[in-house]
C-alpha cells in the first residue's frame, strides 16, 4: 500500500492505467448498452422500458460505490495523513455525483410508465436523493478547503459521517415498505433472468472501469494543480 502511496510511483502507474481503464470501460459499457437496447427481449410486464435497467443499475451501484470510496479514502487519510488518500476522496466525488444523478434521472423516467409516477417519497428514492445532496455538500466543502486553505480533515470527517447513508440506501427496500422493488440480486442469487443479467453485469463492469479511469484522471489533475501551485510559489519566492 505504501509503495503506491508515493506520488511519483502513483503518477507513473496512473499514466498508462488511466487510458487503459477509460477505453476498455467505454467499449464494454457501450457494448452492454447496445446489447440492452437492441438485442435483449422485452420484459413480460415492463415491455421495452426494461432496457433502462442497463443504465440505471450500474449508475446506482457506482453512485453508492463512489461514496464508499470517499469514506475509505477519508478514513485512510484521517489515520495515515497521506495526501494521496485525500486526493482520492476528492477525485471520487465528481464521478460519484454524476452517476447518482443519472441513476435518479433514469429511475424517474422508468417510474413514469411502470409505476405511473415520476417520483414518490419512499425510503429508497428519498435516501438516494439525500446521497446526491451529500455529494453537493462534500464537493463544495472540499473545494472551499482546497481554495481558501484549511484542514483536509474537515471534508474527510464529512465523507466518513456521510457514509452512514450507504447502508440505509441498501437496506431501505428491506426495512420499509417502499414503491421501489426489493433487491433482485442478493448474495449468489438473482431474480433477473439470464438474458437480462449477463448484459447487466457487463454494463456494471464497463461503468466501473470508466469510474476507475475518471478517478485516476482526476487524481492526476489534482496532483498537477498542487505541483503547479508549488512551482509558482517557488518562482515567486525566488523573484522576491
Amino acid at each position: 500500500m505504501h509503495g503506491f502511496a508515493n506520488p511519483k510511483r502513483f503518477l507513473s502507474l496512473a499514466r498508462w492505467l488511466t487510458p487503459l481503464l477509460l477505453v476498455s470501460g467505454l467499449v464494454l459499457a457501450g457494448a452492454a448498452l447496445a446489447w440492452g437496447l437492441f438485442v435483449v427481449p422485452p420484459d413480460q410486464l415492463m415491455g421495452e422500458t426494461v432496457r433502462i435497467l442497463f443504465l440505471h443499475v450500474p449508475t446506482a451501484w457506482l453512485g453508492m460505490g463512489g461514496w464508499t470510496a470517499i469514506a475509505i479514502a477519508s478514513a485512510a487519510y484521517l489515520v495515515w495523513r497521506h495526501p494521496l488518500a485525500d486526493l482520492a476522496a476528492r477525485a471520487a466525488a465528481v464521478p460519484g455525483m454524476v452517476f447518482t444523478a443519472v441513476c435518479l434521472a433514469t429511475g424517474s423516467i422508468w417510474g413514469r410508465p411502470t409505476w405511473g409516477t415520476w417520483w414518490v417519497w419512499d425510503g429508497r428514492l428519498t435516501s438516494m436523493l439525500v446521497l446526491l445532496f451529500l455529494y453537493f455538500g462534500y464537493i463544495a466543502l472540499a473545494q472551499a478547503v482546497a481554495r481558501e486553505g484549511g484542514s483536509s480533515r474537515i471534508p474527510a470527517i464529512f465523507g466518513l459521517v456521510g457514509a452512514i447513508n450507504i447502508p440505509i440506501i441498501n437496506r431501505s427496500v428491506v426495512w420499509w415498505n417502499s414503491l421501489h422493488q426489493p433487491p433482485s440480486i442478493t448474495a449468489g442469487k438473482s431474480a433477473i433472468d439470464a438474458e437480462f443479467l449477463v448484459p447487466l453485469l457487463v454494463a456494471v463492469l464497463g461503468f466501473s472501469l470508466i469510474f476507475g479511469g475518471v478517478l485516476l484522471a482526476r487524481m492526476r489533475a489534482l496532483l498537477g494543480d498542487i505541483q503547479a501551485e508549488a512551482r509558482l510559489r517557488r518562482k515567486a519566492n525566488e523573484a522576491a
Binding site: P41, D43, L45, W115, G116, V120, Q181, A191, D193
Partner: peptide, 17 residues
C-alpha cells in the same frame, strides 16, 4: 384517489411468460 403499480424484483423476458 390514485393507483401506483408496484413492480416486483423479477425480470422475465416476454417469451418465457
Amino acid at each position: 384517489d390514485n393507483l401506483l403499480a408496484k413492480h416486483d424484483e423479477n425480470y422475465v423476458p416476454r417469451e418465457l411468460q
